[in-house]
């Protein structure tokens, strides 16, 4: 028991994180507005569509935010739980190209649709018809952020990203084993390196599948040309090539050394590739090409604890897999030694 506690912990974390990731409701949000273009200096009737909202008549307050200025809505007609019509006068002189829509209600909290409206006529700041102060309501209960384009797929964060983290952890373990092989030439270290590569490839495949599904849902294609995706493809190809290299050498000591050299060489080049290049090229993927990572979506930090639990849990599962294969390799080596004697 003393030695297995971390396996229980890993399974518990993965189960807890996965169940929470699938069962937590999404925060109510505004998902669509019509029209999406503002004509400053005129009255507007804006149709609003909510997701998981419960609009209550006379309680809904709406604002348009542009460059830090809040323009309050005159009247909000609630049609049903998810439909409402906002009547408002949009003043002249809005500063920025895009305006956000904020809808707030007691209990439901404040919902913001980023870049909801395009503002074709720009000025240097509205001087009247703006709110001095905004009413803000806070939502009660635990919910995931509900963001444009992502919607329900935001849950995938807790599956997709931990796979890559675990893969990178296992590949780093494999690198350490490979360096040990170069220093000692021990067969056990070589078996450790290949065990880590096998486990890392499993997580890479899971990362590719979850990523592909996510890409289909948000970007519209199963695979796109993207720096991050190229990095993933290169990583998988490198470790498959590593296995092919091992397969083509029969002498064990030689195989261990050649594989270790290739592993160290490829790991460093791969690291440079996935660290440096995505920052230089345009990318759709969060966390590269100037895109912020997911922390920006998590305004009330509800994703964070689930995500960390998932990462730790999956890393634990990866370590368990590696541990099993490593112990198996040690037993096999012992058995062979016994047979030779």
């Amino acid at each position: 028991m003393k030695h297995w506690w971390w396996k229980f912990l890993a399974v518990a974390l993965v189960l807890a994180a996965s169940i929470t990731a699938l069962r937590t409701p999404l925060a109510p949000a505004i998902v669509h507005v019509e029209p999406a273009t503002l004509q400053p200096g005129t009255r507007h009737a804006i149709e609003v569509l909510g997701y998981r909202t419960q609009f209550v008549p006379n309680e809904v307050i709406a604002y348009i935010e542009n460059g830090g200025q809040f323009v309050p809505a005159g009247r909000v007609d609630v049609i049903d739980d998810t439909h409402a019509r906002i009547h408002m006068y949009v003043p002249e002189g809005l500063r920025e190209d895009m305006s956000d829509l904020l809808v707030t209600a007691p209990g439901a909290g404040t919902m913001r649709l980023f870049d909801a409206f395009y503002n074709p006529v720009k000025g240097s700041g509205a001087t009247h018809d703006i709110a001095a102060e905004m009413t803000v309501h806070h939502r009660k209960g635990f919910a995931f952020p509900n963001r444009n384009l992502l919607y329900e797929t935001i849950r995938n964060l807790n599956f997709h990203v931990p796979m890559w983290f675990t893969m990178m952890m296992l590949q780093t373990v494999s690198l350490v084993f490979s360096i040990l092989v170069l220093r000692s030439g021990a067969e056990l270290h070589d078996r450790g390196a290949v065990a880590a590569v096998h486990a890392s490839l499993l997580f890479a495949m899971m990362g590719l599948v979850t990523g592909s599904i996510w890409a289909r849902a948000t970007w519209g294609g199963w695979w796109t040309t993207d720096a991050k995706l190229n990095g993933a493809a290169v990583t998988v190809l490198i470790y498959l090539a590593y296995l092919v290299l091992r397969g083509s050498v029969t002498d064990r000591a030689k195989r261990a050394r050649l594989a270790a050299i290739y592993n160290v060489f490829a790991y460093v080049l791969m690291l440079l590739f996935i660290m440096a290049l995505p920052r230089m090229t345009a990318s759709l993927h969060p966390g590269s090409g100037g895109n912020p990572a997911f922390s920006q979506y998590d305004l009330d930090s509800s994703l964070r604890p689930v995500f960390y639990a998932a990462v730790l849990g999956w890393m634990g599962i990866g370590a368990w897999l590696l541990n099993l294969r490593y112990r198996l390799a040690r037993l096999e080596i012992l058995q062979e030694d016994a047979r030779i004697r």
């Binding site: 190809l237 490198i238 090539a241 290299l245 290739y262 490829a266």
Partner: peptide, 20 residues
């Protein structure tokens, strides 16, 4: 060359690392 497996293996090993 050390693995004793000519240009075929070189292509497999080389392509992923040369991609960056």
């Amino acid at each position: 060359a050390r693995a004793g497996n000519g240009i075929g293996l070189m292509a497999i090993l080389g392509f992923p690392v040369i991609l960056p």
